[in-house]
Nucleic acid binder design. Structure first.
Lengths: 319, 319
DNA sequence: CTGAAAGCGCTTACAG
DNA sequence: CTGAAAGCGCTTACAG
């Protein structure tokens, strides 16, 4: 690695002068300055920011880590947008991380970054991870996930699932199916659980429980298939709007009278007349980040509520 | 600031032992370990990562900065998704920055981070900024923006605008309007320029040039208004699908026969039957990042092409 | 298992 | 305007 010592040698000056030149050149002779810059260029010098930060006492990073499992889904986009806005207001930058590969490695990388705090989106934390976080005095929160004894900002998926069930029941649906994603997550478990329980309370069995990849095309195809297979089917609940779009298309093309309800309420759902459960995704990102920002200043106050629960809301449209 | 020296004093041990304990406790007596951890907790010790990195020789950050003007628009979401995927494949993390506030300050913050490289999305660079980047030996690229002598990945907006004009002309539209966003950007200038020039080449004047905030509701309202004001209006080009959605709704409600074309081709546009110009947004993010990744390894090779231009594509649907 | 000492690369008073 | 020296907080051989 090239250091200012190397530059000093080549330029025939002392290291202090090199340092001054590299930092703007105040109080440095024009000719000396030129010599130094040239030497730096020739050697392809890159400053060592760790050393610079150390001596300058630059400790607080003014950056927050955001850990996401995936980014592909529009729901995450909304959440991140909320986080982004709140953090920007607090003058913090955002560092995006993904744990889908080597979670442990990413985790230790994050810790080493020396960030002001960490936001975990849609995922829980192991005991080991929580310990590491605490030993390093990290402030952190969970968003779109709830866990005991951990600062959690989440939307009540059980309630959302229940609301979806009630809607279909209110529409006199009798043969009801669910189409979800193939991965088991807390979100889906809660959502599906609330849905199924409410159906049972109303003496309805769930006719279909289909799990597919998170893609409109799969949803389109599997809805086509299910509609044929179950002629009595009259109500369909989708894990999210994205999947419901494909289903809507399939049902429309088949000319069937099947009530469809999605989950999320994405911006375009209003134009597609999709009945859905609205998730306050932006809000949860925004509010959660605000609380984190507050923890930076005030710390966690003993006894402060740790579970922040928002409720989703039924949006009735024509589907 | 609390240092390991403070802990050492309180725990009655040497600093090396503290260091060892804090780094996992290998070769440290159980009792000593406990004493140290307790002292650290009591003092609320936070490690100084700059110092740690310095001594460990942790220089390369394995993180890339992504500078965005805004994040709200779905187009950026697609671009960022492409960046995210490519960077993840290369095992780099992402740091998101926003320059909307104090650009200069953010800029120097980014430099100081010691990132592996920087991606600027939808914005150009001043000469001063380019100099700073070069002095610090930074690898960087522009995405969705083109600038001479700068590694640029962009989609040809002029071509896209021209294509939109040709489409409306092919549909025999005579009275044509444009509804764009109120901010002047390179993207809009190119897009609108290409559109207007092509109309002129076909002896058509542009009837309406309306600029509004980036919001479906504004688009809905102003389309309602314009449709009334210009009874002959038969063709409308929108800066983006997002705006076109609102326009589509207004035109449909008014029962008019007006051809509508958007720009972007967002996922839901297919379900809304919107004719549009498809932007390879994901691709531009992905491909651009791949080239950056390559520069990390190979550096910039003299004579390498600096302008990467992708072409948008007409998607004809029913609107 | 433990501690004193050297050193990571840089900046900044200080004396010249 | 310039350079030698001290020191930022930490880790890691080294000797005990």
């Amino acid at each position: 690695m090239v250091t200012i010592k190397d530059i000093a040698k080549i330029a025939g000056v002392g290291v202090s002068t090199v340092s001054r030149a590299l930092n703007g050149g105040a109080k440095v002779d024009k000719a000396t300055f030129q010599k130094i810059i040239e030497a730096a260029k020739k050697l392809k010098y890159k400053p060592n920011y760790a050393a610079r930060d150390l001596v300058r006492g630059n400790f607080s990073k003014k950056a927050v880590g955001v850990v996401l499992p995936v980014i592909a889904h529009p729901f995450f986009f909304e959440v991140v947008r909320g986080i982004y806005d709140a953090l920007l207001e607090g003058d913090y930058n955002i560092m995006l991380f993904n744990t889908s590969r080597d979670r442990e490695e990413v985790f230790s990388f994050i810790i080493r970054e020396g960030l002001a705090g960490i936001i975990f989106v849609s995922e829980g934390l192991s005991e080991v991870e929580k310990n590491t976080l605490e030993i390093n005095q990290y402030h952190y929160i969970l968003i779109d996930h709830h866990q005991k004894n951990t600062m959690s900002f989440y939307i009540d998926n059980e309630f959302g699932g229940m609301t979806a069930a009630r809607y279909l029941i209110s529409q006199n649906c009798e043969s009801i199916g669910y189409i979800g994603e193939s991965i088991d997550t807390q979100q889906q478990n809660d959502r599906f659980g609330g849905f199924k329980d409410e159906l049972k309370r109303n003496n309805r069995e769930i006719l279909i429980d289909e799990r597919i990849p998170m893609d409109e095309k799969f949803s389109y195809q599997s809805t086509q298939f299910l509609v044929e297979k179950y002629p009595d089917l009259d109500g369909l609940f989708y894990f999210c709007d994205k999947l419901a779009y494909g289903g809507q298309k399939a049902v429309r093309e088949k000319g069937k009278e099947i009530k469809i309800i999605g989950y999320d309420d994405m911006p375009s759902s209003v134009y597609l007349d999709l009945t859905t459960i609205r998730q306050p995704a932006y809000e949860i990102g925004y509010e959660g980040s605000k609380v984190l920002l507050n923890m930076f200043k005030a710390g966690y106050s003993e006894g402060q509520e740790k579970q922040y629960r928002l409720l989703p809301e039924l949006q009735v449209r024509k589907s």
